[in-house]
Amino acid sequence: MNVPDRMLVGRRRLMQGAAGLLGGLPLAAVLADPKLARAAAAGLQDVTIEVPGHGQAKAALALPAAESAPAVMLIHEWWGLNDQIKTVAAELAQLGYVALAIDLFDGKVATTPDAARAQVQGMQDEKGKAICGAWLTWLETAKVDGASRANGKLATLGWCFGGGWSLQASLVHPVDGTVIYYGRVGGTPEELKALKGPVQGHFAEKDQFITQSMVTAWTRSMDMAGQSYEVFWYDADHAFANPTGSRYDEPDARLAWGRTTEFLDHTMRSW
């Protein structure tokens, strides 16, 4: 897939402000406070690329202090690219990653379940795959102010709607690691053979949407495909890692995030 080398950067804000904010508080505390999350999200750069056949695609970019680093592409929940996801990107930049939070809903952010459901139903798989593939291609050679920032190591990370797309993105454009938070999983063994790196999944035992039978069927296919994966189950409900929701489970969210960062560190920094 051809992606223009040129990127259009909107607000150019330095990450120091967001880094200072996150550096003094736990990620969960920032995510749970709309004002703090908004301040952290404001430190990201708006990025736009052209996706052949689908027009422009937008994302929010957070850069680490290092001049060259592995990259993580974040995919939002059914709400859209909101301050919560951007704040996680800022946290990942602090941890030393080029973090790109992509937008699959053309700037729309829902505030009610009905509106969020409509966004998901209006999403075309072909367009989603094209956008994910284009951004991953861009991240392989990402340049900011003319200098390369990503070192070629890539991972995807998504929650709920974005969790399913984290897997789909890694099938469209194989990456070094894939993280799924309670997202829809599936695929035949033949389809899953396209995966390049290991997969880590976080699922909730009380989830009525992403059920244990769905995940079990997927892991069976992963085994048949000879793929590497690890699955963690939590005594929690769907969206347990979202501090702004009613199902938030702080201990499990903290445990899952620790496992996520350990997985990324091992996968992206082991040569």
Results as ranks from 00 to 15, higher is better:
N2T: 14
V3S: 02
D5V: 11
V9Y: 09
G10H: 15
R12T: 10
R12P: 08
R13H: 15
L14S: 14
M15K: 12
G20L: 08
G20Q: 12
G23N: 05
G24F: 09
L27S: 03
A29Q: 10
V30I: 08
V30P: 07
L31F: 02
A32F: 05
D33V: 02
L36E: 00
R38P: 12
R38M: 12
A41R: 01
L44M: 11
Q45D: 12
V47A: 12
I49N: 01
G53P: 04
G55P: 00
K58E: 13
K58Y: 15
K58L: 14
L61T: 00
L63F: 06
E67T: 15
S68M: 10
L74N: 02
H76T: 04
L81G: 03
A90N: 05
L104K: 06
L104S: 01
F105T: 01
F105G: 04
D106G: 15
G107N: 09
A110V: 02
A110H: 01
P113H: 01
A115Y: 08
A116F: 00
R117G: 14
M123E: 15
M123N: 13
D125L: 15
K129C: 10
A130P: 00
I131S: 01
G133E: 04
A134S: 07
W135S: 02
T137G: 09
L139E: 03
L139W: 06
G146P: 05
A150V: 07
N151T: 04
N151G: 04
K153S: 10
L154M: 03
Q168E: 14
G177L: 06
G177P: 03
G177D: 04
T178M: 05
R184Y: 09
R184M: 12
R184V: 15
R184H: 11
G186V: 06
T188A: 05
P189G: 02
L192N: 06
A194S: 12
A194M: 11
P198V: 11
P198E: 09
A204I: 03
A204W: 01
K206L: 11
K206Y: 07
F209R: 09
I210C: 01
T211P: 09
Q212W: 08
M214H: 08
M214I: 08
V215T: 02
M222T: 14
M222N: 13
D223W: 12
G226V: 08
Q227G: 13
Q227I: 13
Y229R: 05
A236F: 03
H238Q: 06
A239V: 08
P243K: 06
Y248Q: 14
E250I: 06
E250C: 07
L255M: 14
R259E: 00
T261I: 04
E262H: 09
T267F: 03
R269M: 07
S270L: 10
S270G: 12
